[in-house]
Every structure is written in C-alpha cells, then in structure tokens.
Design a protein around this nucleic acid. Structure first.
Lengths: 205, 205
DNA sequence: GAACTCTAATACATATATGTATCTGAATTC
DNA sequence: GAATTCAGATACATATATGTATTAGAGTTC
C-alpha cells in the first residue's frame, strides 16, 4: 500500500503523537524520573533531536500527557451526564463506569507519578491542581444531578463529597496498582457499592 | 559536656540511624529516584563509604525505613486496641487517631514513593505487600472488635472493609499531600465521619 | 602496647543524563 | 527547479550516578 507522503505539519504532528505515546508507555513502565528523554525518543523511533524540537522538557511533555488523559476522562463523564436516562439505567451505567476504572492500570500509574511530582514542583502542582479541581467540580455537579434525579437529599456539601469519593476510588486503585491480585474485583465492587449506598441512600442493602 | 567515647558497635549504629534519618528527609524532599546515595550520606554528615558500609543499596535502606515506620504505626494502633475503653472513649480516641494521620506529611510521601517502586520492582513489591497485608489484618481485627464492642453487625467481610477504609484514608491523604490547603480539615473530617457512620452504624447523623 | 580488625574516607573506573550547537535532507515557496 | 525553511540527526560540552578497590585511622584483643 502506497503510504501517503506527509506534509511538514502532518509529519510533525505524527512525531509529537508518537513521542507522547512512547512516553506514556515508558514512564508507566520505568517511572518518570527513571525515564530519560533518550528512552522516550528511542522508543518512539526517533533521536533526542526530535524530542527537543517538539517539547521544552520532560515535564512539559508529561503535563501534556496528563492533560490529554484528563480531557478524555472528562468527556466520558460528561457523556454519562448529558444523556437523560431513567433511574435504573443511570445506576447501571454508573456501576459500569466505576467498574471500568480498573481496566487501565497504565494511566493510573501516570497520575500517581504526577501526584509526587506535584509535591516537589510548585509550578507543576498548580497546573495539576487546576485539572483535579476541574474534575472535582464535575463530579460534584454529577452528584448533585444524581441526587436530584433519584430524589435524594445530598448528605453533605457536594464538592466535599466529590473529593471523598475521588479519594476512595483513588485509594483503592492505588492498592490495586501496587498489589495486583491482592483484592478480588468482586470484593472491591461490593464494598464500594456498600459505602456508596450507605452514604447516599442511607441504607446498607 | 564530655562526649562519651563510643564503642565500635555504638558508633556504627549511630551512623546507621543518622543515615536513615537523613534518607527520610531527603527522599521526602526530592523523591526517591532523584535522591542519590551521595545526597543521603552528605546530609547525614558522611561520605558514600559510610553508606555502602551500612547498606547494600538505596532500595535496601528505603525498605528498612518503611519497615521501621510500619512498626511504629503498628504499635500505635495496637495500643489503641489493647486498652479496654468505654464506648464513648473508644470513639473519641478513634477520631483522634485518624485525625492525627494528617500531621506527618513527610512519611506519607515515603509510602507513596513505595507504592510506585512496588509497581516496578517485583521483589520490593513482595516485601511491601507483606507490610500492607499485615496492616490490613490489623485493621480488620480492629473493625471486628470495634463492632463487637459497639454491638454492631459487621456490614461486610472485615478484611474487605479494612482495605476500603485504608483506601479511603489513603486517597484523601494523597489529595492533601499534593494539593495542600485545597480541602479544609473540617470538611474532610466531617465527610469521613459521615461515610464511617453511614457504613458502620447505618445512619447518617 | 603491638598486632589486628573493622568503619568510613578516598580514589578510580564506568555509566548515563542533559541541553545546546551544528548539520543534513526533505518539504515548501517562488 | 533554485532558494529557503524547518524537522530531526549528530556531535559536543558538561554533569552527576553507581559501585568497587584501596587506604587511613580509630577501636579491640591479647
């Protein structure tokens, strides 16, 4: 098959994408700090020249990586929210949504790396905070809507609840990440849904 | 004051301790990967020679650091458990216990680093798993005892609940770690206790 | 107190990283 | 199709890490 000859812009964009993909893979595997610019470039099939011609630094690329992942997740959640679903369907979709969170370990590791980088790098922290707060607000909005639709009383300030829920899910994901196979999926799911039900519906069964 | 002349063993132990302390400080500040053996030795007032004469590697030292911290935490919780307290007092102590978790950020960062190292280093992961499962079992036991004392039904398998609770607290701590000041202590506390009450007592107020 | 033994310092050999400066060849422009 | 421009390769200068081999000097033993 005759590969299309690329324009300069297309080719540049392709390089950028390949570098980003490679970075995601290598960073997830080796860790951010242990990943050299050379590793990323090589894994993408380029040399460091290509890297520095596309990104200011490793942190720069990393932030773009997170930003893209965040946008994806944001959109997924937004879709869930936008569609007008009947109660049962909504609950089902919701379960499906947080069930699917476990699938992609790789991305999770990236966010764990990001947290630690944020502890040390103030500038990075501020950029990351912006993303996290955006997510919190989105979830808070979701909670509000959800309770409304279910005709439930919101049991605490929605933004606080959102943070707690994010924390809960994150915490469990962290466990799963560093101790794979230690806690069976069904167990997690049943405890999580126990907590959700207890918290939002005020009933445990 | 005439400083006591140390025996060889004492002096060696002192060196070890100083190196461990220095490591905790430097790793919390710069991150595990970014911390060199030289950094640690220097911060402790020695050279690399001292380090390699006391530890096999950076990972080796790191594991000992975690192990010691784990033992400390274990003891604290054990004390809470051993004493026979009246209900109200127990609940009060418990609140105090998880309130105090926030105090020492530095140690928290170390555990976050450990999680990520565990993702990559199988040997390290197994050692870490042992510690974490020990903690889970301890908390599970605590939950069982607690429910017994409070005359409550344990709402799910205690080990699973323990993991979920650890996840919840961990998740929130992670947030606090990378986004200091973003969520006020009172908000956390009130949401956490809402979730605890809902889950264990089946009531939200 | 002489012989020894062990801790920690020093010196050395070897990797591996970063970032910039310069170059080359393929797209683009005219 | 010659001139030009720009993406990406190459080369270079500079740090910084690791781990081992050797050494010095302070405890220890007899």
């Amino acid at each position: 098959m005759p590969r299309k000859r690329l324009t300069r812009e297309e080719s540049r964009e392709q390089t950028r994408l390949r570098l980003l993909e490679a970075a995601a893979a290598v960073i997830a595997k080796k860790g951010l700090a242990a990943t050299s610019v050379e590793d990323v470039a090589e894994h993408a099939g380029y040399t460091r020249g290509a890297f520095y011609s596309n990104f200011k630094s490793k942190t720069d690329l990393f932030l773009e990586l997170l930003s893209r992942d965040h946008d994806d997740a944001h959109q997924d959640l937004q879709e869930l929210l936008d569609t007008d679903l009947p109660r049962e369907e909504l609950q089902k979709r919701l379960a499906q949504f947080y069930g699917q969170l476990y699938r992609d370990h790789a991305n999770y590791v990236l966010w764990a790396e990001a947290r630690l980088l944020a502890v040390r790098d103030a500038k990075f922290r501020h950029r990351l905070n912006a993303l996290c707060l955006e997510k919190r607000d989105q979830i808070a909005y979701f909670i509000t809507k959800f309770c409304e639709r279910m005709e439930l009383e919101v049991p605490a300030p929605a933004p606080d609840l959102a943070l707690a829920m994010m924390g809960l899910i994150d915490g469990v994901l962290y466990f799963n990440m560093s101790m794979p196979g230690e806690l069976p999926d069904e167990a997690i799911e049943s405890v999580l849904s126990l907590i959700f039900r207890a918290t939002f519906f005020g009933t445990r069964n």
